[in-house]
């Protein structure tokens, strides 16, 4: 499964959900698939996707559609505290999707730890309900399955290394992204 295939599937599944997206190639590719108002692209805050998604989940109505975080293995490993913090604070409306390609895909494809460290087991040890997939169909099924879980959920998706070509950079003022996202939050809650 390529990253852009996973993101295309996630774009189809998350139209009603607030989505916090990790920086660089993942944000760019998602925006190229579908640039929606429910997407909060974190343009440079590497490692913060899980933290921001956790804080957002804790601040929204628990009965509202789950907050979705889309994170990469390199970014998660820059702030692995996300896992114990999410397990401890335990928002019921949080689903973190980890797209693991084994490399820092936006910075020269240098290796992350994920070939030797099982990130799904780390999440499970921290208290998250987890699923593991490596196909588009599996991603769709597990995502829907985890939406029904009433505790922090972690969807581990193995993807191929490599970035899609011809994807433009996201040269957007973060304030514009924030404004569009918060307006969508207000309108969807109304």
């Amino acid at each position: 499964m390529k990253r852009i295939e996973a993101l295309t599937t996630l774009a189809d599944l998350t139209g009603r959900h607030p989505v916090v997206v990790t920086c660089a190639a993942t944000s760019r590719e998602l925006a190229s698939v579908r640039d929606s108002s429910n997407h909060l692209y974190l343009l440079d805050a590497m490692g913060l996707t899980g933290s921001v998604a956790t804080g957002l989940a804790l601040s929204l109505d628990p009965a509202a559609p789950k907050v979705i975080g889309i994170e990469g293995d390199g970014s998660l490993l820059m702030n692995p505290n996300v896992l114990p913090t999410g397990g401890y604070l335990a928002p019921a409306n949080l689903l973190l999707v980890l797209l693991d390609n084994g490399v820092y895909g936006s910075t020269g494809a240098l290796p992350t730890y994920s070939s030797r460290v099982d990130l799904q087991r780390l999440a499970a040890a921290a208290g998250w309900t987890t699923r593991s997939v490596d196909t588009v169909d599996g991603l769709r099924t597990a995502f829907i399955d985890l939406l029904a879980v009433r505790e922090p959920a972690f969807l581990y998706a193995r993807i191929e290394p490599g970035n899609s070509t011809g994807i433009p950079k996201l040269l957007v003022d973060p304030v514009t992204i924030r404004d569009r996202f918060t307006r969508w939050l207000r309108e969807s809650a109304a």
Partner: peptide, 12 residues
């Protein structure tokens, strides 16, 4: 982490 978790509160 605190900056991420508590900063996100303002999104609401």
């Amino acid at each position: 982490e605190a900056v991420g978790v508590l900063g996100a509160v303002a999104l609401t």
